[in-house]
Amino acid sequence: MGVLANKGEKVKVRVRVNGVWYERYVSPRMLLVDFLRDELGLTGTKVGCDTTTCGACTVIMNGRSVKSCTVLAVQANGADILTIEGLAQDSKLHPIQQAFMDNFALQCGYCTPGMIMQTYFLLKENPNPTEEEIRDGLHGNICRCTGYQNIINAVKDAAGRMRS
């Protein structure tokens, strides 16, 4: 990318988020998650840790899931990003969203956007995952409330809905 900036100088970042192009001038050290939340007002993506461990900030960037707390906004320059806000189409919930609701896969809801985005990526890569593959694919997303079983059920359910 090679964006260089002097101290205190802002740099231009152009990204396509949920189908819309945005252009902002930001500090080169700004994290993508802060860019999404504070600059674009897309607060659906959450922050749960300082160490890239919890997955609350997961978004899809150029087709791959990333922890947006560990990507600089400038690194996302030119990228295509999908966040939790972009998943439902014309106010019709995505099957993953529906499956989370139907399977009691959330309690406080804080991990939910990240869980759903990581599930989206997992099912794109592997439309019919085994339980072990689900556990492995989502182990970078921490949930402190549900004990995970209902999330696993939701992922299986969503996979079924998306295949049919």
């Binding site: 007002g41 959450k46 919930l93 969203q97 009691f104």
Partner: peptide, 22 residues
Amino acid sequence: SVKRLYDEKFVTGKSTYVDDIS
């Protein structure tokens, strides 16, 4: 086992925790 009434905002990213308040 009635479905939770207020889940939709959480699965669509419209939940509002204190840090989300503008």
